[in-house]
Design a protein around this nucleic acid. Structure first.
Lengths: 209, 209
DNA sequence: TATTAGTAACTGAACAGTCAGTTATCAACA
DNA sequence: TGTTGATAACTGACTGTTCAGTTACTAATA
């Protein structure tokens, strides 16, 4: 029952996921405008017309891709944060390591890049992403850091600022992996960089008073 | 003698710069593929044909834009770093503040975003950017940090990692400004974030031993 | 044999790039 | 100083291509 096994198959329930998977790859490589529906369909093992049985338009396909690719990761992190009892520093280390691992390994890291790139062409989508996904993620981190500040574990920093500072090197790694990694002579040690980042950050947060 | 004053003017030497300026704006807003040559020409106060008197193709225009927009900033920072005598921490603060100011105010911050977005469609350009611009910038920072490590002012960290960590929040600010800032209810305080970042970073670098 | 997933040839619109023609400018001459 | 011919910057209508989206048909399934 593989996509390539037989040319003609009726598999109504498997198609959308396959098409979204293919779309992720092609959008990641080309961006929205330069991605051809023909390419996406080929990669999904169908013809162009088939995509239009499941998605209204190229734009609708793009939006579906964004919307379906976000909640799981956030939900997981949220659970981890809420269930944790212990020093905020330990939790921060845990969460950042987890996100770092995701960024180092998952295909999905291309999504932020696509959103940022297409923000001008799809303002509603950028707004959605900003107000739902980013706001939630930043909110989670901000709360975590505020907890540490309140308890006296961290210095009196602005939690919102520090949330962004915490995430920035991870995002940089994501952008690097999807844009420049192909030109690295030897693969860059993102995990090591992220570890260093966490060490420095926690040292900085706890230093002084 | 302004571009809009009279419809028809012969100004061979002024055109290329005006066209590049217009291209920066339109590419920044739309990305490469969705940008129309007609729009760029209109914004530059000429018609489409005129662009082709100065640039071979849309791609050539794009590449020219990238190439002309990079050296000055790097050169300035390089001079600052090489002429400075004093603690590495002070210099790091100076350089990051300077770049932060650039990012908070200049139109040029859209360029990294465009490059990242189009890396898949213009690999040679991405390679050029990576090997020339980024390598130089990272090299500068890496050297600066290595200096601090050698002198014992900083802890024994990996200078390459820390260079990236230092720059990451600034890049994040650039991406934010060009993609999501339009949706902020009140303008986000990037300068404050960057200041916090520098404080944390320096505290982290000097803490312990 | 009725239904519907899937196909592939087709259409129309958008747009990069071209080119024959137009007009500002300037040098040479009256 | 005014006229004119040569030059080249600039224009905008046109062309060919690419590609999103449609549709008339085909084949699998129930």
């Amino acid at each position: 029952m593989e996509a390539t096994q037989s040319r003609w198959h009726r598999r109504k329930d498997a198609r959308p996921a396959e098409i979204l998977e293919a779309a992720l790859t092609v959008f990641a490589e080309k961006g929205f405008a330069a991605a051809r529906m023909e390419d996406i369909s080929r990669r999904a093992g169908v013809t162009k017309g088939t995509i239009y049985l499941y998605f209204d338009s190229k734009e609708a396909l793009f939006k579906a891709l964004i919307r379906q690719s976000i909640s799981p990761a956030i939900a997981g992190a949220k659970e981890q944060v809420n269930n944790f009892r212990g020093p905020a520093g330990d939790l921060l280390r845990l969460v950042l390591t987890r996100i770092g691992h995701f960024i180092a390994t998952s295909d999905r890291v291309v999504l932020p890049k696509i959103i940022v790139a297409e923000a001008g062409n799809f303002p509603e989508l950028a707004r959605f992403y900003r107000n739902e996904i980013i706001a939630q993620g930043l909110g989670l981190l901000t709360g975590l850091i505020a907890r540490g500040v309140t308890s006296g574990e961290f210095r009196a920093v602005d939690p919102g600022h520090v949330a962004r500072i915490s995430i920035a090197p991870l995002l940089l790694a994501a952008f690097w992996r999807t844009s420049f990694a192909q030109f690295d002579d030897e693969p860059y040690d993102h995990a090591g960089m992220i570890e260093t980042h966490i060490d420095l950050l926690l040292a900085g947060l706890s230093a002084g008073g």
